[in-house]
Design a protein around this nucleic acid. Structure first.
Length: 704
RNA sequence: GGAUCCAUAGCUCAGUUGGUUAGAGCGUUGCAUUGACAUUGCAAAGGUCAGUGGUUCGAGUCCACUUGGAUCCACCA
């Protein structure tokens, strides 16, 4: 053995050995199943540091494999609809092009090529990190058989009355050119002028004077004494486009304490106003088009962008004496596109919605009855709040990259025909053959929500029956609502069963200064670079060690270094044992704690066997309870400061065949316990000692 | 507006159902060592556990409030 452990000579060779021998493909036998579906990374970029946190899953998987479960860790990749198109458009932008330069088919094909290339690279990266994924079951969200299942679920939902075509205000990004679900909208605090505008005898406050052309009522609170005499009446007042008449309505949602207690109602461009409009039967007048420009009804302002129009309208109103005052320090929250930051415009457009309440109720039940448990538990509150206040889900996206919605509209009677993908022959209502498919694609999360059952139903025969529900869903807490909640809802709906039993949520890996890593900030650290430098084992260990599981952590170079030194320490314990081996070549390994206790002659050796026994017991318990950091710390401390510093120092001057037997066997036990955390170095030592076929399929140590 | 998390050594963080002298890594200081390992060992210095009040025989840990930081949810016109 070399004096220093060099991961560069080891890792690739070891992973190949594991893969060639199919250790990661669960054997077909009568043992109990244990399964985790890998949260499929987006196939639009190389892995980032967060993905290295998959190590948590690998620890669970390797632990259970060693425990004798038929263990499946199923890899995959996500086409990541909008996210990918966004990334690709950035790429186009650098080449001086845009999405508008290509037709639908060409753009799709270009993105597909790009994604498939990335996907290959990603898979290698996952291997470099030592993840024991079953590559014989690799899936992609755009695989034919997956898409088929997605369509089937959509059709079933439609037939069950859970999908409807809704014409209502949706969150629309005028730059990205697509609508979003409520979750994809960010809220941002911002200072804007609050204009107090004269509407005849009344004054009202608004931050959006440019939408006043779409006002179709004025509203006050039902109980507001100041304005009782106006309710139900029409008033006439001066506007930029001449005199106008408007009705005054009363509604309970109006806050009498805001501004003057009087509000303009613009149903086409404000969520609350839209709802009010429905209650009071108001006309809807569109002021802003999908490009974010004012429509022709605004007269001279037509074609102006919203921001420009706002300034101009305010200026002109000021000139006309229609503005009473302006509060320039008004702070409020606006909605922005979570990706590009553009202000979201609520737009009236027909979209496909999923009725969520019937889906949420069984999910709530499953969580409250603790059929699905959360680790750390604090996340349970979040998801329950979300499920209990759930709103219908807009799953239409005006993008090319994704799964096209299997809906065809009759060009004569406007009814819709939904299929499981096949092109319908005629309209179900009027038999017309003039049908046109919806241009939109599904929200990526609509297919992701089906991932646990869609994968298992399309891998190998029997997989679904055997491995579903999966044992654990492990991911970062930031997609708890986007993904975990929806998998639970859609999983129960489509299969009648929960998709997984335990939800285990890790924290965010931030940069060394504690800032979130992001491409725009330029503080992204490539996990593979650190793997090159410190070794995969060190990277894995550093992510688990020293941070309470579930908490965010700043990537720490000193910690990576400490972890690398740890792998070297483990290696050098091996060297010491190796050096003493020639005189003890007949010593048998693979002895259990019980056997060792029987044969050990020296009092100290017996003590060390007992200490190791306690370690087995504690470490096993900690992994089972998802207390990964206790395990990592316990193993680190024992290996270094007990086993190396004390035990070896003690035994080195009194080595007999008997004491050596204890030593080498306790070391082997230690290697087994450490293997899920640092698989490469432990396997390399194991192979050099010839302890057996592979640590990957070794049995987890049993305590006495 | 609702909710959650965090605040412990110079830095990054552990501290498990409340229980002796509060721990680790890195850093600092001293000593040792051609020994499995200088990617080492031994030792030392370094903490009013953010603040205030409460519960308790006992609080870093539980409760309330305050301050500072982060995050999630939310149709504040």
């Amino acid at each position: 053995m070399d004096k220093v452990y060099n991961h560069k000579f080891v890792e690739e060779k070891i992973y190949q050995m594991w893969e060639t021998n199919r250790y990661f493909t669960p054997p077909k036998n009568q043992k109990k199943p244990y399964s985790i579906i890998l949260p499929p990374p987006n196939a639009n970029a190389p892995l980032h540091f967060g993905h290295a946190m998959y190590v948590i899953e690998d620890i669970l998987i390797r632990f259970h494999r060693m425990k004798g479960f038929a263990t499946l860790w199923l890899p995959g990749a996500d086409h990541a609809g909008f996210e990918t198109q966004f990334v690709f458009e950035k790429k186009l932008e650098k080449e001086g092009k845009s999405r508008f330069d290509f037709d639908r088919e060409t753009l799709y094909k270009m993105i597909l090529d790009y994604v498939l290339e990335n996907k290959k690279g990603m898979q290698n990266q996952l291997k470099r990190l030592g993840f024991s994924l079953d590559w014989t079951r690799n899936k992609f969200t755009l695989d034919e058989d997956i898409v088929k299942i997605v369509y089937k679920t959509f059709k079933k939902m439609y037939d069950d009355g859970l999908i409807y075509r809704g014409e209502r205000l949706v969150n629309y990004c005028t730059k990205c050119g697509t609508s979003f679900s409520d979750l994809e909208v960010n809220h941002k605090e911002q200072k804007d002028p609050l204009y107090f505008i004269k509407y005849g005898p009344l004054t009202l406050a608004t931050v959006r004077p440019e939408t006043k052309f779409g006002d179709t009522a004025i509203a006050v609170n039902t109980k507001d004494k100041r304005y009782q005499r106006y309710i139900g009446k029409e008033i006439e007042f001066e506007t930029l486009l001449g005199k106008r008449k408007m009705k005054i309505i009363a509604d309970e949602v109006i806050d009498p304490d805001f501004g003057t207690g009087v509000v303009k109602v613009t149903p086409a461009h404000d969520m609350k106003d839209f709802e009010m409009g429905k209650r009071h039967n108001l006309e809807i007048i569109k002021v802003i088009d999908l490009d974010g420009r004012l429509t022709e009804i605004t007269g001279p302002y037509k074609g102006m962008r919203v921001k420009e129009a706002r300034g101009k309208v305010a200026e002109d109103m000021e000139k006309k004496g229609l503005i009473e005052k302006v509060d320039n320090d008004y702070i409020h929250t606006i909605e922005v596109c979570y990706k590009c930051g553009t202000t979201i415009e609520p737009m009236l457009m027909p979209q496909w919605f999923v009725k969520m309440e019937p889906l949420a109720n069984p999910a709530i039940e499953a969580i409250e009855e603790r059929k699905i448990k959360f680790y750390p538990k604090r996340h349970e509150k979040n998801i329950l709040w979300f499920l209990k206040n759930i709103k219908d889900w807009n799953i239409s996206r005006q993008i090319v990259w994704g799964i096209r919605i299997p809906a065809w509209q009759c060009q004569e009677c406007n009814s819709w025909v939904i299929t499981e993908r096949e092109i319908p022959e005629k309209c179900k209502d009027c038999n017309s053959k003039k049908l046109k498919q919806d241009e939109d694609t599904f929200d990526t999360w609509f297919s992701s929500a089906q991932w646990p059952f869609a994968t298992l139903k399309t891998t190998k025969p029997g997989d679904f029956d055997y491995f579903y529900p999966t044992s654990v869903m492990e991911t970062m807490y930031d997609i708890l609502l986007f993904w975990v909640a929806r998998m639970i809802m859609v999983g129960i709906y489509a299969t009648g069963e929960i998709p997984f039993k335990d939800v285990v949520l890790h924290g965010m890996v931030k940069d060394p200064l504690g800032k979130k890593m992001s491409k725009s900030k330029g503080n992204v650290i490539d996990p593979l670079e650190t793997v090159d430098q410190y070794g995969a084992d060190a990277v894995r260990f550093a992510l688990v060690y020293g941070t309470a599981f579930g908490n965010d952590q700043a990537l720490s170079y000193p910690k990576l270094d400490a972890a690398r030194k740890f792998t070297n320490k483990l290696w050098n314990i091996g060297r010491f044992i190796e050096i003493n081996r020639s005189q003890n070549s007949k010593v048998k390994t693979q002895k259990s704690i019980k056997e060792l206790l029987k044969i050990a002659m020296h009092k100290n050796d017996r003590e060390w066997i007992e200490k190791t026994d306690k370690l087995i017991k504690d470490m096993t318990k900690h992994i089972e309870h998802y207390n990964f950091h206790f395990t990592a710390e316990g193993l680190y401390d024992f290996t270094w400061h007990e086993f190396a510093d004390k035990y070896i120092e003690d035994v080195k001057n009194r080595i007999t065949e008997n004491s050596y037997t204890v030593l080498i066997n306790l070391y082997l036990i230690l290697l087994k316990l450490l293997h899920p955390f640092v698989p490469f170095v432990t396997e390399e030592i194991y192979q050099r000692f010839g302890f057996g076929e592979s640590l990957a399929i070794e049995e987890w140590p049993v305590h006495a």
